[in-house]
Write a protein that binds this DNA or RNA. Structure first.
Length: 532
RNA sequence: GCGCCUGUGGUUCAAUGGAUAGAACAUUGGCCUCCGAAGCCAAAGAUUACUGGUUCGAGUCCAGUCAGGCGCACCA
């Protein structure tokens, strides 16, 4: 990757300057190389001179000039020009030869372009959606669903081995389901109350129907779970590797009981007011919490600890939980439990903020009519829905305007991206043998061609950054940027022309673009149509 | 009251502490005899809630204020 190469170059040069005592000895911190928005600032830029100015006791400009001349001496084929600008930025300009050569690289690697090794084959567990089997998936679940699925794709691309996991809160045997939540309000009711539908103004018609058909709580739950699973696999097109049942995989295997004994044996549990409390406050949480009620029944917390113990035992290097905002208070408890259990890997708990339907929920609450995720997908389609969700950062609340979404589905940015793909395919259909001759890549000199190549080679960097910071919204943005540069190229350069060599070179360019565009869409779970 | 998240053009959202805060939608105008106009080009629109602080540099970090959301169970 080009960024890595530049960073290595800078480190090397700083060390040389230190040896020559032009720069004093200091620890080289992280070298920050960025992709400036302004073209005049080069393809890459670093602020390293500004950062080390203080410790080096020299002016940033002086340091930058020193670094520049040292790097220039190396005569790298990758760089065409290096500039030092005002406060002390060093701007790098990539050479045409390097850029042209990258097309060859993309065509060679095909869909493996952007595949990284930073995951080193480490095992990652991603748990997401995990909707209670007491109703259909709603708009809020869409966030976790698409975010989790896409993040898993990106981590795989970055070289991790991922497991997509869904936790089913279906404990009915030992525990009994006490809470039925519809998608609007969570209300607690005893089991017998649940099964007198006439008295339940809170529950959706959907749930009432299920209750009147199946009568018993465990049957209602397994029926709903089955429907949700079906919906997720077939309509959301998300394939989970693992469906973990609280009832079957934890309670029936005595894992909840075992973890309680283990915690007890470690002296982490005490009795107060007839209940058993876990000393979470000693492990970083704000207070202690009950794990066994006065009645002797375990709480959700205990079974969730058992679940996490199970995950830890399965040997994951990294565990990512994607929870809704209403579970925020649960984070401290599970983190505390992870410490108690001595989990050595990363435990990242991501909270997705609430999805709010514009115009409020008035009618839905009373009538039990809610906007389900299925309604949304029926209205706008899976591609639009996925894109819509992915463009927003997890920790901002999102306001969902269904009317607007429907209206905009016609002119949605997803079509803009897909159109670029379809356009490429359309051009390729006009060529008899769309195999590209990579011998004429040096003919790619037009600013629009070079700009497009520069965007293409950002792809691995997008994967790297996103696999580190989980800022998924970077991906749809990249897709839009790439499509824009393609459309501009299309405006400026005719692919099929009388000039056979140039045609070959441009075919190679659009083939490379197609590969990266398709891959970007694949990562987001969005289709890349050949015709629209 | 305490904890977490958020406050950016009319709207929905971006912006690893960097250079002139970007898109999309909406608004206004221009571009199809030529590889797909679901496209391209342009205009207009922002005191980044407010007040201080940190530094070469703050939408971003820190403190405080205001506003909104979520959580604070022997519910899950």
């Amino acid at each position: 990757m080009i960024r890595e190469e530049i960073i290595k170059l800078i480190i090397k040069v700083i060390k040389e300057l230190q040896k020559e005592e032009i720069l004093p000895d200091f620890e080289i911190l992280e070298i920050h190389v960025e992709h400036p928005e302004e073209k005049a600032h080069g393809d890459w830029a670093t602020n390293i001179a500004l950062q080390i100015a203080k410790t080096a006791k020299k002016s940033p400009m002086e340091i930058a000039e020193n670094l520049k001349s040292q790097i220039s001496n190396l005569k790298s084929k990758v760089l065409e020009k290096i500039e030092v600008v005002k406060p002390g930025f060093i701007n790098f300009f990539l050479s045409k030869e390097y850029l042209q050569g990258q097309i060859k690289e993309i065509l060679k690697q095909k869909e493996k372009f952007g595949q990284l090794k930073i995951g080193k084959g480490q095992k990652v567990n991603l748990e997401f959606i995990s909707a209670n089997p007491t109703g259909q998936l709603h708009l809020g679940h869409g966030r976790g669903a698409f975010f989790g699925d896409t993040l898993a794709n990106i981590l795989e691309k970055a070289g991790f081995k991922t497991t997509r996991e869904y936790y089913i809160n279906d404990a009915v045997g030992g525990l009994q389901i006490r809470t039925i939540s519809d998608t609007v309000t969570t209300v607690s009711r005893l089991p017998e109350v649940i099964f007198t539908p006439g008295e339940l103004p809170y529950y959706s018609d959907y749930l009432k129907d299920k209750i009147s058909i199946f009568k018993s709580s465990d049957k209602v739950i397994s029926a709903i779970q089955e429907e949700n699973k079906n919906f997720i696999e077939n309509k959301l097109k998300i394939k989970f590797n693992n469906w973990v049942s609280e009832e079957k995989d934890l309670y029936q295997k005595n894992k909840v009981e075992k973890i309680q004994k283990w915690l007890d044996g470690k002296g982490l549990v005490y009795e107060k007011e007839g209940a058993k409390w876990l000393k979470t406050s000693e492990y970083g949480d704000i207070k202690d919490w009950v794990i066994v009620r006065e009645t002797g029944e375990p709480t959700y917390l205990l079974s969730d600890i058992a679940y996490h113990k199970d995950k830890f035992d399965r040997g994951f290097d990294k565990i990512i939980n994607i929870w809704g905002a209403d579970h925020q208070g649960h984070v401290g408890k599970i983190k505390a439990a992870a410490k108690m259990l001595g989990f050595k890997g990363d435990l990242d708990i991501l909270i997705s903020q609430i999805v709010r339907l514009k115009g409020g929920l008035k009618l839905s609450k009373r009538k039990g009519e809610i906007i389900t995720l299925e309604n949304l997908i029926d209205e706008v389609g899976l591609d639009v829905a996925r894109f819509l969700y992915l463009t927003k950062s997890l920790n901002t609340q999102m306001e969902f305007d269904l009317e607007l979404a429907k209206e905009q589905s016609e002119k949605n940015p997803v079509y803009y991206v897909q159109y670029a793909h379809a356009r490429i395919c359309s051009i390729l259909r006009k060529v008899k043998h769309p195999t590209s001759n990579i011998k004429h890549l040096t003919l790619l000199n037009h600013p629009s061609e070079l700009a497009l190549i520069k965007e293409l080679i950002r792809f691995p960097e997008i994967i790297e950054d996103t696999s580190r910071d989980y800022q998924i919204q970077r991906l749809p943005q990249y897709a839009i940027d790439l499509a824009t540069l393609f459309h501009q190229f299309y405006r400026d350069c005719r692919v099929i022309s009388g000039d056979k060599n140039l045609t070959q070179a441009r075919l190679a360019l659009i083939l490379a673009t197609k590969i990266v565009l398709k891959d970007t869409l694949d990562l987001m779970g969005i289709s890349a149509p050949k015709k629209m």
